[in-house]
Amino acid sequence: MDTITTTKLSSEEIFNLMKKFITEVIGEEFVEEMDITPESSFTKDLEMDSIEIVSFSEKIKAHFGDQIDFTGWLSSMDLDQLINLNLGMIISYIEECQS
């Protein structure tokens, strides 16, 4: 069980945390073959489908609690924005919520 984090994370720490969540969701064997960078897009590069993004959202919720409304943020996007969503955008969003 994750404990809710209230300390402010640097962008590198957020990136590493997101990588950890992605690995937990899609499995280490797939992540090993990938070069995950802030430019990696969720649907095209990481090939995450929507149920995997549900899992990923849940991990963010468990980690950050009410501090970050990740699902709310995603639901404000249209399909094109969701398709183009990359890790860097999520890092910026989490940084904004922390400031």
Partner: peptide
Amino acid sequence: SNLSVYYFNIAP
């Protein structure tokens, strides 16, 4: 399919 068909838009 799965519950994600509702999760991001319709359910909120």
